[in-house]
């Protein structure tokens, strides 16, 4: 009864549990909401609730060179890293989906590892490695974001492939289609929701990535989250930061709506 229907509840739980749940949602979402609302404030400093509405801090955001270029870099990075991660992860998922055994298990673990691996260590390892072999800031960042995004795509594509009927591929091949034609004409049209949601996930993860980017950005080549962080650290809470944050939140909401339109939200909650 562990679906906690009314008859399964301990006495008193009927009130306490929903209260804790509502409180949990408040403290999880509240801080984000406050930043987004404050971004529309016409005042010079952080006031909550704002006395009026204005877009002055968004205008200011796009007027500042460092903010604008950080935003642009984050977008480019997220687009390229998500696309590369989706390709790599789809290859890995296709190669591993029908394999059993210890080696396949280890490889799956490897492609999922960045999900739980302390990414700050990955950032440090990459920084040292790049310094030693000489990798530029931009390709270095792309690679790091690909690594961090790949597990999301891998899991998403793998889930799609697990319910894919591989006799369809065999049918395609017996009719004379090569492996590429089979993939693009038979497999991809069936598994595309997994590929698409994987791409979105990787994009979002890359757009907010902090721990690896912390070490890998450089002067003039900074991502938006790192730019927000250094502003907060060295110049205090300014409303242009709230505007930067609100832009990030807005972009994510747009992407969530796009996922809902394209593949449905149920897929999101499962992955």
């Amino acid at each position: 009864m562990m679906k906690p229907g009314k008859r399964g509840r301990a006495p008193g739980a009927a009130l306490v549990l929903p209260a804790i749940t509502i409180l949990a949602y408040l403290v999880i979402i509240g801080p984000i909401a406050i930043v987004v609302i404050a971004a529309f404030s016409p005042t010079e400093f952080f006031v909550f609730p704002p006395p009026g509405l204005s877009l002055r801090w968004f205008v200011e955001f796009f007027r500042l060179d460092n903010m604008r270029s950080a935003f642009a870099l984050s977008l480019e990075l997220a687009l390229s890293a998500a696309s590369l991660a989706t390709i790599l992860a789809s290859m890995a998922a296709l190669a591993l989906v029908r394999r059993r055994g210890a080696l396949a298990g280890v490889l799956q673990g490897l492609f999922l590892a960045p999900l739980v691996f302390p990414t700050i260590i990955l950032g440090l390892a990459l920084l040292l490695f790049y310094k030693t072999v000489g990798v530029g800031i931009l390709p270095g960042l792309v690679l790091a974001h690909v690594l961090v995004g790949t597990p999301y795509c891998f899991r998403s594509v793998l889930t799609s492939l697990q319910s894919f009927d591989f006799t369809l591929e065999e049918a395609g091949q017996s009719l004379g289609a090569g492996p590429f034609r089979t993939f693009f004409l038979v497999t991809l049209p069936v598994i595309w929701p997994g590929v698409v949601s994987g791409w979105f996930f990787a994009f979002i993860v890359s757009f907010g990535e902090l721990n690896t980017a912390l070490f890998l950005t450089g002067p003039g080549e900074t991502t938006l989250p790192i730019e927000i962080f250094s502003y907060l650290q060295f110049q205090g809470s300014q409303l242009v930061i709230a505007a930067a944050s609100a832009l990030q939140v807005g972009l994510i909401l747009v992407l969530i709506l796009a996922i809902e339109r394209l593949v449905g939200l149920a897929r999101l909650a499962r992955s």
Partner: peptide, 9 residues
């Protein structure tokens, strides 16, 4: 999905 820097802010 929102960056931790925004949530910490």
């Amino acid at each position: 999905m929102v960056s931790n820097v925004v949530r910490a802010y």
